[in-house]
Amino acid sequence: MDKTIIVFLAAIIMLQAPGLQGDRDDSLDVGIPLVGRLLRGLSDTGSVAYRTPSTPDLSLIRDLINRGILSDHPAAWTVVRDEDE
């Protein structure tokens, strides 16, 4: 296989590896082409800043709530989504 193609594929794999994509850090330039946006795991509209974080360690969150660092106040303006939606 041509060396250029191998390097190109390796670059794509690296961009899609966990911890590299979907992060706002220095990843997006104004006017970045659509292909580049998609390769970086970003929305094609640019309207969403970054992907929703993966599920965190909830025991840590509960600990922070219990210590008063975070609150768990009920939020307004929300709907529960049905499973078939």
């Binding site: 800043a49 975070l70 768990d72 009920p74």
Partner: peptide
Amino acid sequence: PGQRGSCRVRMNLDGELVSLVYGR
């Protein structure tokens, strides 16, 4: 469940949307 919105401060905690920053 366990995820937050893009604002980082509103979270699905056990099927309920909560504000993590009320009074903080």
